[in-house]
Design a protein around this nucleic acid. Structure first.
Lengths: 143, 143
DNA sequence: ATTACTGCAAAAGATTTGCACTAGG
DNA sequence: CCTAGTGCAAATCTTTTGCAGTAAT
């Protein structure tokens, strides 16, 4: 299968074995842009992979981050670390009424990132930019 | 004392009793821009206030955040939540090597905020902007 | 065949909680 | 006084770790 080859190549390139678990976790992050925590990933995959353990989820996430295949978004609002396969810095908008998280890609961030790099000599490896407030839909519906 | 009155007023306004502990913790955050964790605050205040407990530090920080007197900055990739009394919008730069958090105030944020407001119709009530990577000092020292 | 990876269960840390006691208003 | 706030210790929750067994190459 072609899809298998892509995973194989990606993992082989960085000297990692392609296990069912790693494939499942990485695939999950590629297909879901919900910024899940380790626990959420585990809960979602467990029905399909009953043999998967939470410790493996943590191990795998660490390995994927180390090899820059995914991003660690840190824990901004709850006490858990969130992960994302989307590597480009983008804005998360959290609506405090409907609790939906939406993404907002914009050029401004690249400018800001470059500014930080050049002005401060800080080597940026990631960013979490979260705005919270009330989304257009909730405002319109006067919730 | 005048200074006492300011604390009294601030706390009374939001219906909180001014205890020695709360005053000490809030004062500590106002005077130190080191973005400390609960543990760090406790360790620093304990010699002067031997009766202070870690649980009270956690309680107090929660109360102060709820009443918007301080900010919860999330973790600095070191498994602990950091706090800051600086309420003005600014960027936090977290070094993943030394775990220090530094501030970077810039006009760009106001532009970004306005852009989100006008383009998306999102009514912004707050923001947390965190960049992480390697700081100049750690890069220089080749840690 | 090797040995990197996994699952499990126990450990380690950070934070929260229940409750009797204390002190601020 | 009255009750919000505190200290303590136990509980909880997230993440890490040690080790024997399993599976990828």
């Amino acid at each position: 299968m072609i899809a298998e080859d892509i995973f194989q190549q990606t993992f082989r390139k960085i000297g990692l074995r392609l296990t069912k678990q790693r494939k499942a976790i990485f695939e999950y992050l590629l297909n879901n842009h919900t910024h899940p925590t380790a626990q959420e990933i585990f809960s979602n995959l467990h029905p399909m992979y009953p043999e998967l353990s939470l410790a493996t989820v943590y191990n795998t996430l660490e390995v994927l981050v180390e090899n820059s295949l995914i991003q660690n978004l840190g824990s901004a609002f709850d006490e858990s670390v969130h992960y994302d396969a989307d590597q480009s810095p983008h804005i998360n908008l959290i609506c405090t009424l409907c609790h939906k998280i939406s993404d907002y890609p914009t050029e401004s961030i690249n400018q800001l990132t470059m500014q930080i790099r050049s002005t401060l000599g800080f080597r940026v490896s990631g960013a979490r930019i979260v705005y919270y407030g009330k989304c257009r839909t909730c405002l319109k519906n006067n919730i």
